[in-house]
Amino acid sequence: MLLQITDLSVEFTTMQDRIEALHHVSLSIDEGEIVGIVGESGSGKSVTALSILGLLEKNAVIKSGRILYRGTDILRLDKKELQALRGKEIGMVFQEPMTALHPTMRVGDQLAEVIARHRQLSRKEAYAQAVKSLEEVHIREPEIVARKYPFELSGGMRQRVVISLAMAAPPQLLICDEPTTALDVTIQHEILKLMKELSVKRGTAIMLITHDLGVVAELCDRVAVMYAGEIVETGRTAEVLQNPGHPYTRALIGALPDLADPAEPLHAIGGELPDLRSRPEGCIFAARCASVIPPCREVRPQLQPVRPDQGHEHQVSCWVR
C-alpha cells in the first residue's frame, strides 16, 4: 500500500463557525494505481488532496485520522520532513498551469532547477535532462520550447510543462487536482493519455481529483465518490459507473446529458448541499435523496460491500438495498 488515509476528519474555523469539510474519510492507493476522487464543489475532494500534501490553510484543524505514506504518518511530520516528501515522493498538478509556473523564468531553467535539486546534477546536465523531459511529455521541438516563457505557450503546452515539473523527481504518487478542467476537450484528451502513459511507464500512482465522471471513466482504475465531505461510494470504475449503488452516484450519472438519447429530460438533483456547520444525524444525502426510508434520517450508514459474496471492493454507504 502506497498511501492509506484512515478516518480523516478536517474542520475549518471561521470567525463565527466551525465547518467540518471532511468527515471520517478513508481511502487507499496502491503503487502504480490510478484512483479518481469525484464530487461536486464543496464535496471535500480538494481538501483531501491538500491534507495529503500538508498544504491546508492555517484555519484548518485535523480532528482525527491518519495519512500513512509507505507506513509513515504524514500528519506527524514536521515542516522540513514534509518539504522533503513533497515534490520528491509526492508530486502535484493543479488546475491552472499558469499559476504553477514562474512567469519570468524560461521553461527549461525552471525544469532544470527542480531536476538539479532532486538528482544532484550539474546545471548543464540538469538542463539537458530538462530538455529530455519535455520530449517525454511529447512536446515537439523541446530545445526551442525550453527557451520560452510560460506566457508564450498555450494552455495545453503549459500543463505538459507542469506535468513534467511534477514528474521530475520522479515521484511515487502524483496528485492531480482538476488537471484538465481549464483545457479544451481535444487537449484534455491528449493530456489524459499522457498521464496514463507516464503512470504505466514509470509506475507512478495517480490520485485524480475531478468533477467530471467522463474523465474518471477515461483514466481511473478505481473511483471514490464524495459528497459533502464524505465518501459515499467506492469501487472499480467500470463497476461503479455501470452499477452505481448510491443514490447520489446514480443522480450524478443521470444529470449528465446522454449523447445517444438527447430527448430524455435530465435528472436534476433537487435541493442544495447540507449546512456543514452541523451535520445531520443520519445519512448526509437524505435531504435530497429520492429513495429515503425510515433509518436514513436517524442513523448514519457506513461504507459496506454492495455484494459481499463478490468481494469487498465495491462499497457504498446507504441503507437502501
Partner: peptide
C-alpha cells in the same frame, strides 16, 4: 476526444 461514461452507448 469526448470522455464519456456513455462511450459504449455512443
Amino acid at each position: 476526444s469526448l470522455p464519456s461514461i456513455f462511450r459504449d452507448k455512443r
